Simulated scan of single mutants.
Amino acid sequence: MKKLLLLALTPLLFSNCTRDYYENDERIIIEGKVMRNNVPLQNTEVRIYPVYNASPSSGTIGEITFNNSNDYADDGHTIIKTKTDASGKINTSLPRNINTNIYAIKISNGYNSKYYGYISQYNTSNYYVNLGTLNY
């Protein structure tokens, strides 16, 4: 019986190896708007994920371009996945990752995606950040 129990629990021991950890109920409120050619983009997918190898030096949030394959891109560790509303607005919150305080934003419309960054200590005040208008 003990062997059967150990065998049943073994997958659980390895399930947390690549997991992100978050600080209890501590959340950052995020607001912003997505526009294309001065028209709000509605029902557009927005993903927010932690970044471990970026070090922003200001609170400016702008488009991120990747110059080579070593640059950071979404590695599938999305924390928040939401969509813009009818007026292109983003209104969400994300739990604070205990391993980093820097986050990137991926906006996808159809088959096209753009990356924006960074949410960090430079533009977060009292657990709130306004992304402003992100031009897609």
Rank of each mutant, 00 (worst) to 15 (best):
M1L: 14
K3H: 13
L4S: 10
L4T: 04
L5P: 06
L6N: 12
L7Q: 04
L7S: 11
A8S: 02
L9S: 12
S15T: 08
N16D: 14
N16T: 13
C17L: 15
C17A: 14
Y22C: 02
N24C: 08
E26G: 06
I28A: 02
E31A: 12
G32I: 07
G32T: 05
M35L: 09
R36G: 03
R36K: 14
N38S: 13
V39N: 08
L41Q: 08
N43D: 11
N43I: 02
T44S: 03
V46L: 04
V51T: 14
Y52K: 07
N53P: 02
S55E: 14
S55P: 01
P56R: 01
P56K: 08
P56Q: 08
S57R: 15
S58P: 07
S58H: 04
S58R: 04
G59W: 04
G59S: 07
G59M: 10
T60H: 15
T60C: 09
T65H: 09
F66E: 13
N68E: 01
N70G: 04
D71S: 05
Y72V: 13
A73K: 15
D74S: 06
D75M: 07
H77F: 14
T82Y: 06
K83F: 14
T84S: 02
T84E: 07
A86F: 10
S87F: 12
G88T: 00
T92C: 10
L94V: 02
P95A: 11
R96H: 11
N97G: 04
N99H: 14
N101T: 11
N101G: 13
I102L: 08
Y103Q: 07
Y103S: 08
I105H: 00
K106S: 09
I107M: 00
I107T: 04
G110M: 06
G110Q: 01
G110I: 01
Y111W: 15
N112P: 01
N112L: 15
N112W: 10
N112E: 14
S113A: 14
S113T: 06
K114G: 00
K114V: 05
Y115R: 02
G117L: 07
G117K: 07
G117I: 05
G117V: 09
Y118H: 05
S120F: 08
Y122N: 13
Y122Q: 14
N123M: 06
N123G: 08
S125K: 15
S125P: 02
S125W: 08
Y127V: 07
V129D: 09
N130H: 08
L134R: 00
N135S: 11
